[in-house]
């Protein structure tokens, strides 16, 4: 079974580059352009992994993760991308399944490594 990853960012160039990197690595990718769309797709398609931007129209990445955690039976492991890394309070992310907070500009290679690492750990557990 392939791992399904939801990529949410209001910058089309970013969703595009992340999607290609993950697809080239054999992962199944679905894309959302804002927080609300990401929420709807996550509820409908139950991805195994979430990569989301922090600042998005409609709903922030933190709000998205919080709502999905509250409403879905299984938490979705998440990587948060942000251009405001220093402004994120650990207390905002501690209770959420956020594995990594990656600051923009980010490396797609490093992002893929993080996803792989998380999925492998998840597979082992």
């Amino acid at each position: 079974m392939t791992c399904k990853v939801l990529v949410a960012d209001d910058d089309a160039y970013i969703t595009n580059v992340v999607a290609r990197k993950l697809q080239n690595a054999g992962l199944d990718v679905i894309v959302a352009m804002d927080g609300r769309e990401a929420y709807e797709r996550a509820i409908a398609e139950r991805p195994d992994f979430l990569i989301t931007d922090l600042q998005m129209p409609g709903m922030s990445g933190l709000e998205l993760s919080a709502r999905l955690t509250a409403e879905l039976p299984e938490p979705i492991p998440t990587i948060l991308l942000t251009a405001k890394g220093f402004e994120i309070d650990r207390t905002d992310t501690d209770h959420l399944p956020i594995l990594h907070v990656m600051s923009k500009p980010f490396s797609p290679r490093e992002l893929l490594d993080n996803v792989r690492g998380a999925v492998e750990i998840g597979a082992l557990s």
Binding site: D11, Y13, I14, V17, V18, R20, K21, Q55, A83, K84, K104, P105, F106, S107, P108, R109
Partner: peptide, 17 residues
């Protein structure tokens, strides 16, 4: 800084690709 980082993120990511 957020605004400057957005295009910079694309440049870095696509160059790395």
């Amino acid at each position: 800084s957020h605004e400057l980082k957005a295009p910079l993120s694309s440049i870095k990511a696509y160059a790395e690709m």
